[in-house]
């Protein structure tokens, strides 16, 4: 079952194309992550899917519904955490949760949710008294009060410290394990790597790659590197005897062999043994999601 289906979605703002003809679908019960630099079109995509913006072209189905026409039905089925939303300073956590409970047809009780996110003792506090991480947890709780089939999380962990971020990751996995579908955008590659069943990399409003993590890395078609130290000249020897070598680099005693072949290390070891060449510290460096991302978007990863 598909929870979200998007075909040829296009959105322009004042003739600047924000999202250009993108298509993808999200499997029910999975975590779908959208990755991309600032201004790539992530938030626009979310806002078109949940009916906050009218698309200029294309077709969006969410739980089989049209996000604009069926929105009153839809808003009982999805929970959303929007980027940069804050709430009234002087509203108490319990009042805000209670207000959201009154909005939905079949809400979840907020007390167990507060308990689960470790915020029960903050029930009587004003929103302005909470830390950034606690406020983001409230944002998730408010999204969950709807008892949603799909949870949208737009840059949930931006600005959180590493510990709070890891806590969030645990929460998001639990949501998936409850059978909910998660659609999230993020800036953090390790977050996507840890959480997402499927990753969609978007750049300048276009989809660059969409796959699971190893698929994305394969698509980027990056060499693995076998590195080792030796005093002897081995470059021509390796080139003559081993196939699939893209290039060889040598820096002092360190040799780096680049190749697309996953098993090339065994060939190298056998060759060096047969020729009685002394070597040490042999290692394989495989491309990470970050390498793939950088290659696919052609952009330096912004350090936040």
């Amino acid at each position: 079952m598909k929870a979200i289906e998007v075909y040829g979605l296009k959105k322009e703002y004042n003739s600047i194309v924000a999202v250009d003809d993108i298509s993808f679908s999200v499997e029910e019960g999975s975590i779908f992550g959208m990755l991309g630099p600032n201004g790539a079109g992530k938030s626009t995509t979310i806002e078109c899917i949940i009916g906050l913006r009218k698309k200029d072209n294309g077709d969006v189905k969410i739980l089989g519904l049209d996000p604009i026409k069926d929105n009153s039905k839809l808003y009982n089925l999805i929970g959303v955490q929007l980027q940069e939303t804050s709430y009234q300073d002087k509203i108490r956590v319990s009042e805000l949760c209670d207000l959201f409970m009154s909005m939905y047809d079949e809400p979840l009780d907020y007390i167990p949710l507060l308990e689960r996110f470790g915020l029960l003792e903050k029930k009587k506090n004003y929103m302005s008294e909470l830390s950034g991480g606690q406020r983001q947890k409230i944002a998730i709780i408010l999204a969950l009060i709807a008892n949603p089939k799909i949870v949208f999380l737009d840059e949930l962990t931006t600005g959180l410290d590493p510990k709070a971020r890891r806590e969030m990751w645990k929460c998001i996995r639990e949501l998936r394990d409850e059978g909910r579908t998660i659609f999230m955008t993020t800036h953090y590659l390790e977050e996507a790597e840890y959480l997402c069943d499927e990753i969609c990399i978007i750049n300048n409003g276009e989809i660059v790659a969409i796959d699971n993590i190893s698929g994305i890395i394969d698509r980027a078609n990056i060499d693995i590197i076998v590195s080792f130290e030796t005093k002897e000249e081995v470059a021509s020897l390796i080139k003559e005897n081993i196939t699939g070598v893209s290039k060889i680099e040598r820096l002092n005693n360190m040799v780096k062999v680049y190749s697309k072949r996953d098993d090339i290390i065994s060939d190298i070891v056998i060759l060096l043994r047969n020729k009685n060449i002394d070597y040490s510290r042999i290692d394989v460096i495989r491309p990470t999601l970050e390498d793939a991302y950088l290659k696919l978007t052609g952009k330096e990863w912004e350090v936040k």
Binding site: L52, Y75, L82, E84, T85, S86, F100, Y104, D105, A146
Partner: peptide, 16 residues
Amino acid sequence: QYRERKILKRFMITPV
């Protein structure tokens, strides 16, 4: 203030 803090926007995606 409700608009600047996106509170109005948040309400758009609820049944209210």
